[in-house]
Design a binder for these strands. Structure first.
Lengths: 347, 347
DNA sequence: CGGCGTTGTCGAATCGTTTCGGTGACATCT
DNA sequence: AGATGTCACCGAAACGATTCGACAACGCCG
């Protein structure tokens, strides 16, 4: 089959109408008589025409219907985190209103290949987290004059931002523990910076990941000198490792642990059980995120429920608004503190 | 700023060269003298030109650099499964060789919006799982004459397919249990069809999900009459529910359980513990996938290790090959049986 | 019956690149 | 010195659709 695909012009010719009319039949921008529409559709059918070429359409329209989502991590790593997953879901929802799809982009293109961020036909971009690495991507995107939204990260002047009240929220959990009488509290944080290896965080460490820094600050607002152990990622296994570190020294053992994510909290709980400690009787544990941790039952974490999907949806709507020429504003979501059965008065 | 973005023609004019030359400077398709190149680059810089418009380029080239990935599930659900996540990772890798990005597509577009599958500028499509629902998507894509690859699913004649030796692999695990002396075996399967609710699978049930059917067949090759409980999804919690069902009746209790995924197996193990059974002494449990189940330690599942990332990578390469005009062949990957500490001789 | 608002269709002008054949100019070989 | 190649660069023609103003034809009203 050497024959190339039929174009809308071919269809128009076969149907005996002008290309403009045929185009309108497919786009529905203008009224067309039923008779004509049918004729065009028939012609399309007989020619095997399956609709306008999206490439040509997007050139003419100046829109591709594609929103790029840029992650700093390895793609797989990004989806290991249920919060990000939920966020993606919301985002997909949000951009669906303008009929757009999500193009997955890695921050640093694998060696030797084109940076797709510069060559992809994006209408807009959403950056997830913005710690250093993403700055570069941000530069590329803004240079292209594309609307951009940053989720959970400081992007600098004039960039639309979707974020949480991380510090205030974490402070709530801390206050809760304080009110329960806890004084010796341990903190388990998310990664301190890209490439961070798990370990205790020195007091003079500079924390480049916004979320980690803010939540830690919130915890320290209440427990000024609480030691903090930084995990390498948000996972149960990392939490387990962190928990072991916290509970290693029986004398220095905390009576409560503030974890910066539910997954970490779940790991900490497991570490506690391992150490023969009962939760919440011997040690209270709080999480952050409010997700359903697979397999954690019967525990119900005391945690901060964040509107993860809403964050994504908001980003999607913001992007849609910007594309529609409206101005959108940054949004700061609020977490809801939820008491579960993993925190109790100090024994 | 009413001023529109500069085009490559503007840049060419400023640099005093023809548009074709300017184009070549950016694409690198032909040799250009250093002096000219520099002149063009300078002109671009002073005009704020950030490279060729991808939309126009893709029209002219006939390539957009975008590969669509179509899921049948809710986007979020897709990424809850570590296997899919790994697969995506490999896929991203595989298509990176042609500098393509991955466009996330849901099978059924949310109501009231354009089906992006038909309007997105795709070079190729990868369908994940192909059970009924996806058939429609498949029709759309093939009608558009786009190269398509199906991962884990029967797509019918002439469609390139990437799959596993599901049946043979599962049979290995079953044989292993048989060799250990087990006779009363329970099976926990993945979803039987889209929208399946957890429950025992009647003998006359038609199983439309390929993976589920094949693995079940493999298990029944060895244990012809083993009862099968179908989970609604691949998760620990579903496995837990299934396990409870299996262990509910002490008299009918199986001495071994074949789970169709590691996540399910993890849940079954938890259910066993809950029922006061010890694994593997009282009951053996095998999984499928060979992923690292977060928080399952110290158990190491006896399972079938599937090359999830390789599947994705293979799909990516297949797509790349087809786009290059070469012919690619279907691939069937082989799982590796790995004995862990969750299976033991029958007590 | 003439003016007028509707409705449906058409022409022509883009949208911004890339590509391909061609053309000088200049170096190399015999 | 003439023939032959190479190297850079240019012009013009696609790529396939959308859009917008113009324009007939038509029914309606006073």
């Amino acid at each position: 089959m050497n024959t190339r695909r039929p174009t809308i012009t071919d269809v128009a010719r076969t149907a005996g109408v002008s290309p403009s009319t045929a185009s309108v039949v497919f786009s529905g921008k203008t009224a067309v008589s039923d008779a004509t529409r049918q004729r065009v559709l028939d012609a399309a059918g007989s020619l095997g025409y399956t609709g306008p070429d999206p490439r040509a359409a997007s050139l003419r329209r100046g829109r591709s219907g594609i929103v790029g989502v840029v992650f700093e991590e390895h793609l797989g790593a990004a989806f290991l985190d249920p919060v990000k997953t939920l966020m993606m879901d919301g985002l997909a929802d949000g951009v669906a209103s303008i009929g757009a799809g999500l193009l997955l982009l890695r921050d640093q293109a694998p060696l030797g290949t084109e940076p797709t961020l510069t060559t992809a036909p994006l209408d807009a971009a959403v950056l997830v987290g913005c710690s250093g690495l993403l700055r570069e991507s941000l530069a590329v995107v803004t240079a292209r004059g594309i609307p951009v939204v940053v989720i959970e990260g400081d992007a600098g002047e004039g960039i639309l931002r979707i974020e949480l009240d991380n510090r205030e929220a974490q402070r709530q959990a801390a206050s809760h523990l304080r009110a329960l009488g806890h004084e010796k509290v341990g903190i388990v944080t998310l990664a301190v910076r890209a490439g961070w290896q798990r370990g205790w965080i020195p007091d003079d460490e500079t924390i480049t990941v916004d979320v980690t820094r803010e939540r830690l600050a919130g915890a320290r607002d209440v427990f000024r000198d609480a030691p903090a152990f930084g995990a390498a990622a948000s996972s149960i296994d990392e939490g387990l490792a962190a928990g072991r570190a916290l509970f290693a020294d029986a004398a220095a053992r905390p009576t409560a642990v503030l974890a910066q994510s539910d997954l970490l909290a779940a790991g900490v709980i497991r570490a506690a059980e391992e150490a023969g400690l009962s939760v919440p009787d011997d040690v209270s544990v709080t999480g952050f995120d409010g997700i359903v941790v697979d397999g954690l039952a019967p525990y119900e974490l005391t945690t901060l429920v964040q509107p993860a999907a809403d964050k994504g949806r908001a980003a999607g709507h913001a992007v849609a608004a910007m594309l529609a020429g409206e101005t959108a504003a940054s949004i700061r979501f609020t977490c809801v503190f939820r008491v579960g059965n993993t925190s109790a008065p100090r024994a």
